[in-house]
Amino acid sequence: MMRLPKMDYAAPPTLSEVCVLMSEQQEKAELLAGGTDLLPACKLRNKQPTLLVSLGKIPSLKDIRFDESEGLRIGAMTSLNALRYDPLAIAHYPALIEAAAAVGTTQLQHMGTLGGNICLDTRCTYYNQSESWRQTRAVCLKMGGEVCHVVPKGNKCYAVFSGDMAPVLLALDARLKLASSAGERSLRLSEFYSGDGRKPLLIRPGEILEAVIVPPPAGKESSAYLKYRVRGAIDFPLAGVAVRLAATADGLCRDCSVAITAVSSAPVQVPEAADLLKGKSVTAELINKAAQETSRAAHPVANAFGATPSYRRKMIGILTRRTLTSLAQNLGMAVR
C-alpha cells in the first residue's frame, strides 16, 4: 500500500476558523474535502502539505437550496452522490445529475464533493506517478521543475483539467462564492480557471470555495452532459461536453451554451459554437457546424492514457453533436 506522509490534521467547526488557519499556514496547508483527489496526490508525493484542514465539520457547507430568483445554491461540501439524487437538481438541471453520475465510481461519488471536483488538480501521465517513478526523469514543470515530458520543447505545463462538473456549471453560467479572512467574493466560474496546468485555479491564498450558485432556468430549457472515457466507470473523461439549450415558444433556439472539459488545462466555454445556434431553427446542418466549432476549440496533448489527442478532439465534435441533437429533440425543436 502507498503510505501518506506524516501530516497534521485540523477540522475547525466554523468557516471563519478555517479561513484563519488557511491564511496563517498559506502553502503548507491543503484543504481537505472528500480527499479523493488530494489524498492520492499526497501518497504519490505530488503534494506534501504539513497540515490538512478538513471542511467536514461545517454542516452549512452541505446545504442545497433553491430559490426562484437566485437559483440553486449548492454548498461546496455537498457530495456528488447527494447532488446526484437531489430532487431540486434533478428537477431543474439534468446535466448536473448526468455529470455527477459520471464521476469515477459510486464510492468516489459518495466521498467526492462538488467543490472538490471543481477544484480538481490538473493531471498528466508524467505527473500522477509515485515519487520513485518520477525520479527516473528530470523534474517536470508541474512538479516545480523546468521541463515538460509531454511537449519537450514547450515552456508551458499542459497538464489536463479532468473534472466533470465544471463544464456543466460553465454551460449553466454558475457563480462561485469564495470566503476568506478578508471577506467574501463572488465570481463567475469562467473566471476561476487560469489555463495554466501548473496552477489551474485563480484562487487567492487563504481563499475557500464555499458554494456554487446556478442561475434559475428560464422558460423552456434543458441541459445535458456527455463524457468519453475508456470504461463505463472509474475513468476520468478523455473528452466531455456540456450543453444548455433554451427554446422559444415557436421552437427556435433562444439561448445556447457549450462547454468542454478534459482537452486542455481548463474547462472552457465555446461561444463560437453556441452563437451559431442562437435565434436559429436548429437543423442537423447547424448542429454539425457547431460540433465542428467545438472540436476546433479543443487542444488536447498526449498526456492521458486511453486515447490520442486527435481522437479526443474528434470525440468532442461527436459528443457535441449528440448532446445538441438529443436536447433539441427533448425540447421539441425540429431537427432536420
Binding site: 501521465t125 517513478w133 527516473t136 475508456v230 470504461r231 463505463g232 466507470a233 472509474i234 475513468d235 492514457f305 486511453g306
Partner: peptide, 16 residues
C-alpha cells in the same frame, strides 16, 4: 519504464 503501473491507468474491465 512502465508508464501505467496503476489500476486507474491500466484499464482492466469493470462490471460495466
Amino acid at each position: 519504464q512502465l508508464m501505467n503501473p496503476s489500476l486507474l491507468d491500466f484499464k482492466i474491465p469493470t462490471a460495466m
